[in-house]
């Protein structure tokens, strides 16, 4: 009995030693000044909320010796943020929270001179699915009814989104092309504003992330019709996926963190370690569950591969859109 206890204590001590050794090795590089935490969206939207949540988790767990300072650069479908990273004076202290405009904006605006392959992969924090929503007063309860209603409106069906070439507009265009519909698309500043204007019936339906429409959905203002995910979503489990219905299609918004081009390997290793810790934290896991994000951890290497497949996919989607 005594020996086991001693062995156990010894084991504990060794683990503690090993742990301290690991942490001192892992922190070969540490930020020496506040980290510029660029957000590819304006204040208040889905991406912004996630970035601020991540910042809070880091602050709460005292994970960084210097704070992450959120810096909203939502202009030009993320172009402003990409340029800020490209021109970062101190790449070791500049990181970016991205959406899919990380892929689409350089494709749509080649003159920006952005090559995402020069960016430093840090971590994939999860992917955000999309759902088609309609206001409850429209009395539409199925995807088929919705198609019929849009056809009947004859080009006067109004949908809101975050801008041409943005994630939700790609899905909206996909709907138009695959179901032979004509939709009037109104761009907004962010997903939150879209959700609000759907609840206020300024627009007729929207393609929104569950996190953005959640409040109004739980209050019964908006009705989910179909989700564009691979599996049914826990928040709206009675809603079918488009795959179940008829078409092989799914689309997610990435919630990933990347570093500025030219970031040193040591700094990249530091951030990769930091965001792994944040990803594994109870808070982040809880957040993904409550906001219906799908977990999808990727390390740096897997992320680089993922970028290539996404660039190809978006090239195809944008071409079909006629961009």
């Amino acid at each position: 009995m005594k020996t086991t206890k001693r062995a156990f204590m010894g084991l504990l001590g060794a683990t503690a030693l090993a742990a301290s050794a690991v942490s001192s090795v892992a922190h070969a590089w540490e930020p020496t000044k506040p980290i510029d935490f660029v957000i590819m969206a304006g204040a208040g939207g889905g991406a912004d909320q996630i970035a601020r949540f991540i910042q809070s988790v880091a602050e709460k767990g005292k994970m960084t010796p210097r704070p992450l300072i959120p810096n909203n650069k939502g202009g030009g479908s993320g172009a402003e943020a990409l340029i800020a990273l490209n021109n970062a004076r101190d790449p070791d202290h500049t990181i970016l929270v991205t959406l899919n405009s990380f892929f689409t904006t350089p494709l749509r605006q080649p003159n920006l001179g952005i090559d995402i392959n020069t960016f430093t992969p840090v971590a994939m924090m999860g992917v955000d699915p999309f759902v088609l929503w309609v206001h409850k007063d429209r009395n539409i309860n199925t995807f088929e009814d919705w198609q019929a209603a849009v056809k009947e409106a004859d080009g006067e069906w109004v949908m809101g989104g975050t801008g041409k070439g943005q994630e939700d507009s790609l899905v909206t265009t996909w709907l138009e092309q695959n179901y032979d519909l004509k939709i009037k698309y109104i761009p907004y500043k962010g997903g939150g504003a879209v959700a609000k204007d759907l609840a206020g019936q300024q627009i007729m339906s929207s393609v929104n992330n569950p996190s953005e429409a959640k409040g109004f959905f739980e209050n019964g203002d908006v009705v989910p019709l179909v989700s564009f995910s691979d599996e049914r979503l826990p928040l709206v489990s009675e809603v079918p996926t488009v795959k179940e219905l008829d078409k092989d299609f799914s689309y997610y918004n990435q919630r990933a963190v990347v570093g500025a081009p030219g970031m040193s390997d040591e700094a990249a290793a530091y951030y990769q370690d930091l965001f792994k810790k944040i990803y594994d934290s109870e808070e982040w896991q809880g957040y993904m569950a409550s906001e219906s994000l799908s977990p999808l951890w990727m390390d740096a290497a897997a992320q680089k591969e993922y970028w290539q497949t996404q660039v190809d996919r978006h090239k195809e989607l944008l071409e079909k859109m006629g961009e």
């Binding site: 204040a43 208040g44 912004d48 909320q49 601020r52 949540f53 910042q55 809070s56 988790v57 709460k60 609840a199 959640k214 409040g215 109004f216 739980e218 209050n219 203002d221 808070e283 957040y287 409550s290």
Partner: peptide, 21 residues
Amino acid sequence: PTTAILLGGMVIWGLTPGPRL
């Protein structure tokens, strides 16, 4: 802009702002 940051705070405190709050 200030309330945008307050909103972020509420999310981490575990509150969901919205019609049901």
